[in-house]
Nucleic acid binder design. Structure first.
Length: 457
RNA sequence: GUAGAUGUAGCUCAGUUGGUUAGAGCACUAGAUUGUGGUUCUAGGGGUCGUGGGUUCGAGCCCCAUCAUUUACCCCA
């Protein structure tokens, strides 16, 4: 029989026990911080109606949505003329009505609208689930990856924004990251800048271009802007704003001057200042808070504050992002409900921690004791001890009798079990069991009581 | 969608201007050790050199195609 070469789809991965232990360490840390700030967990389905997702992420984003083919003979119902065109875009709505979720924010907005009568506002929820993007994989970019989102809807207070900064700082510091920057900006400031140079229609091109400043440099940005139809005068007006230097307050001051003729821009400055003032009262642990005017973020639905987190210790794209969206639920028929949220990119955080060797050994909680038996009698003899240790919350295994002791010890060794207990006829006769410390190799004869005492320390 | 790089043992990789039977380390199996892992020593299994075609007396190596993986761009966590 021909066998197929085992493999997983591009951009997806298996997770081994060791990897899962470390991944859970990340998830548990982030979840505990979310809970501490009053967020409650929900889950939504892996797939959504395609119509729920399309149009929320911009043209580029829509292309990256994984569509699910309809069941059955999905081509049979399609109009023959449409089929003849061979235009996939035309056909998609006919042959696919479901898609894998692209992020957690849009499904959450759908959830809020659908369950509005059961929800008490402000509603603070967190969600840790995989999302899928039909992207071309590369370093730090997968087609299936986990996001850890915390969002609040029904509160326009800027205290929420300030708390998001604290959550980022606390969670990432707890994970052991030592040097990371939480960048903050405000879409209203970007709108203001566009307004000042009278290019409000081109705000997307504008933001996409200046977002690349640290990657392609000033000249690159200028080249891209002129490509998109911005004049020399426009660019000259933009330059001082893009190249703002100094502390956050200094930048804010200069911005106020530059945006003096834009009410919306000034409002963005006010919002930012409020958030910064909140944070002044509570110093951050390891994070640096930086007002970054070039921060744009691709998602279309942001309207107020926007966040992005970057580690400064290794080369990696952003490890988190978020912002305020004033009308995401409006698309599902619930107007006037503002929301704001952040996301942690767990897989990228994993890659960063792996590269920096930041996982504590305690992240792996495997078997602590393996009981090895020489024969069936010893196996029965061991059962009460086995359950006694488990009752003390000590992870304990009993190797089924029959295998050579050598085999059993090898098993313990490869699983890095720190202690083994050996039971044979000698031990059963004396009541003194062979208790072995696998790290030092030392072995002593102890009663079950002594063993329990030693292990429950 | 655009451009580059790489495909040789389960894994990481050597393999000379094309020349006998394609190697190493790790991993695996067995033994040295009939009541003991990790260290050491010995032996062993495992390869249609991604696939298809071409050049040649002869191809892992050169040429073409194709598939896969990967990096960068676009965009994004």
């Amino acid at each position: 029989m021909a066998s197929i070469k085992p493999s997983v789809p591009k951009g997806t991965r298996d997770f081994s026990p060791a990897e899962m232990a470390r991944r859970n360490f990340i998830f548990d840390t982030i979840k505990s911080v979310f809970r501490k700030y009053g967020y409650q967990q929900i889950e939504t389905p892996s797939m959504e109606n395609l119509s729920t997702l399309t149009g929320k992420y911009g043209d580029e984003g829509d292309k990256l949505i994984f569509k699910i083919l309809n069941s059955g003979d999905y081509l049979a119902k399609v109009d023959a003329d449409k089929l003849a065109f061979k235009d996939s875009n035309l056909l998609i709505s006919e042959i696919s009505e479901k898609a894998l979720r692209y992020d957690l924010t849009v499904p959450f907005a759908r959830y809020v609208v659908q369950h509005q009568n059961e929800i008490t506002f402000p509603f603070k929820r967190f969600q840790v689930q995989p999302v899928w993007r039909a992207d071309r994989p590369q370093k730090g970019r997968y087609r299936e990856f986990y996001q850890c989102d915390a969002d609040v809807v029904g509160s326009d207070s800027l205290l929420n924004e300030a708390e998001f900064i604290l959550i980022y700082d606390e969670a990432l510091s707890k994970l052991g990251l030592r040097d990371f920057t939480i960048k903050i900006n405000n879409r209203k400031i970007l709108s203001g800048i566009a307004q000042v140079i009278d290019k409000s229609d081109n705000i997307i091109d504008l933001t996409v271009a200046i977002d690349k400043l640290d990657k392609i440099g000033l000249d690159g940005v200028i080249a891209e802007l002129s490509n998109k139809g911005f004049t020399i005068e426009d660019i000259n007006k933009l330059k001082p704003v893009i190249l703002l230097e100094g502390s956050n307050t200094e930048k804010l001051e200069s911005l106020r001057k530059a945006l003096a003729n834009s009410p919306i821009g000034l409002q963005g400055c006010d919002e930012l200042e409020t958030v910064l003032n909140y944070i002044k009262a509570t110093p951050l642990q390891k994070g640096l808070l930086e007002l970054d005017i070039t921060l744009a973020r691709g998602l279309n639905y942001y309207t107020g504050a926007i966040f992005e987190v970057k580690t400064n210790e290794v080369q990696m794209g952003s490890i988190g992002g978020g912002g305020r969206y004033d009308d995401l639920t409006g698309m599902f028929g619930l107007k006037g409900l503002t929301g704001a949220g952040i996301s942690f990119g767990a897989d990228r955080i994993y890659d960063v921690m792996e590269e920096l060797d930041l996982f504590p050994s305690s992240a792996v909680q495997g078997t602590q004791v393996l009981i090895c038996c020489f024969d069936k009698d010893a196996e029965s003899y061991a059962l009460p001890l086995l359950q006694r240790l488990r009752g003390l919350e000590i992870n304990t295994e009993l190797y089924p009798a029959g295998a050579k002791i050598k085999k059993q010890m090898e098993y313990a060794n490869s699983k890095q079990v720190p202690y083994t207990i050996l039971i044979g006829s000698e031990e059963m006769a004396s009541g003194l069991l062979a208790f072995k410390d696998m790290t030092s190799g030392l072995q002593e004869k102890l009663t079950t009581g002594q063993i329990v005492e030693k292990l429950s320390k």
